[in-house]
Amino acid sequence: MNRQELDVIKELANIKIEEILDALGIEYKSKYNYVVCACPIHGGNRQDAWSWHVDRGIWTCFSKGCHEQHGSDIFGLVKAMRDCSFMDAVDFIKGFVNLSMSPDELQKLRDQRENREFIQSTKRKHEKTEVFSPECLNKLEHHGYLETRGYPRWLLDKYHIGACLQTNRYMSNRIVIPVLNRLREIVGFTGRTLDPDWHDKGIPKWKHSNGSWVSSNLFNIHSAAEHIEETGTAILCEGPLDVLRLEEAGIHNSVAILGKKFYTGQMNILIAVGATDLLEALDNDTAGRIGGSSILKTAKTIFGVKRVPIPNGRKDIGEMSVEEIRRVFDVYEEAIRN
């Protein structure tokens, strides 16, 4: 059997992936263009540890990298699950696909696959994110600004938050908050200015480290993923200080989109970790309401979306007390607690 024939079988198998997973005894959830579950190879309880990417026709084990050992295509999956040879895996998959296709149909299938691979490779080039060494956190210094706003020191330490007090740095005179991905790697930083006259001086209140990493990352996803999977709900905030206040209140399934826009890459992360519902909690200002409406329009075909009302007199969740947060979120008790 030549490579071209194997590619056709892989393409057809991707169309029948749910039937194949059923036959392999894998329990899963279908989410948008992903199929997610606990890793069927090494086991484990995390229901977001394994995913099948429908557009690309490959699988990934996020916990132990089982795909690297067995191969990330359908053949590797079947070999690992059935403990069989490559040709036995091919024969198993052939039982689910229709190989009696005309040359024109096969060519159309190949063209579709090549187009998808080209689009995905282009996306990966744009979305490739630099990973920072944890040692860079040693350059951050203690600063009392957030403590004066009521954020406890233990919480700031948990998220490795400090200040850049060196001069002539990109984040000089800012509270710096590292952003981690699901693998707990540092992919970027966001910084809040310490200059009280930032508005008059035309200084941005917040700014992110360079690169396009924001569109494919969410602040707090490294911590919130397991809680989102257990509850099925993600709380979408605008900035990291909102998330910190929710954490202080004992609500652990919130993430920050780091702005007003909800990117497709961020949406895909939530799909992969098992979110089915979103609680939109952007700022209580005109820009926040516009952003919230945009999220509703973008996400409502995939998720159930509800708006969390921010009390009058409060600009955002970060300005609310723990008691106020608990009162507001009491109505969402089942969605936020596990």
Score class of each variant (00 low, 15 high):
326 R>W: 09
217 N>Q: 11
308 V>Q: 02
306 K>Q: 13
311 P>C: 03
2 N>G: 15
317 I>R: 01
310 I>F: 01
325 I>R: 06
294 S>P: 00
178 P>W: 00
55 D>G: 03
122 T>F: 12
257 I>N: 07
222 H>W: 11
90 V>C: 10
233 T>P: 06
8 V>A: 08
89 A>K: 00
292 G>I: 00
131 V>P: 02
271 I>K: 15
259 G>Q: 11
301 T>Q: 14
30 S>Q: 05
212 S>R: 10
104 D>S: 12
159 Y>A: 04
200 D>W: 01
136 C>A: 01
161 I>A: 01
10 K>V: 04
171 M>W: 02
112 Q>L: 12
311 P>H: 10
178 P>G: 04
62 F>H: 15
215 S>T: 14
329 F>D: 02
39 C>P: 07
219 F>N: 09
240 P>A: 07
222 H>V: 01
338 N>E: 08
76 G>L: 10
221 I>Q: 05
298 T>I: 09
177 I>G: 08
278 L>E: 03
112 Q>E: 11
175 I>R: 03
154 W>Y: 15
137 L>E: 11
160 H>C: 05
171 M>C: 04
3 R>Y: 11
308 V>D: 10
107 Q>W: 12
105 E>I: 07
255 V>F: 04
99 L>N: 04
281 A>Y: 04
247 E>A: 06
224 A>T: 06
214 V>F: 08
19 E>T: 01
216 S>K: 12
244 L>R: 07
127 E>M: 07
162 G>F: 08
2 N>A: 00
121 S>K: 13
244 L>I: 10
109 L>F: 01
98 N>V: 00
31 K>W: 00
114 E>A: 10
17 I>V: 14
291 G>F: 00
39 C>R: 11
247 E>C: 05
54 V>N: 08
254 S>Y: 04
329 F>K: 03
198 W>L: 03
218 L>C: 03
106 L>W: 04
120 Q>F: 14
113 R>N: 07
17 I>E: 08
303 F>M: 01
323 E>L: 02
96 F>H: 07
96 F>L: 03
148 T>G: 09
258 L>W: 03
276 T>A: 05
138 N>Q: 14
219 F>K: 09
227 H>K: 10
304 G>E: 04
76 G>E: 10
56 R>T: 15
110 R>F: 15
256 A>F: 04
304 G>W: 05
161 I>W: 08
36 V>E: 09
174 R>A: 05
123 K>E: 14
125 K>P: 02
85 S>P: 06
129 T>H: 06
283 D>G: 11
204 P>C: 11
19 E>G: 00
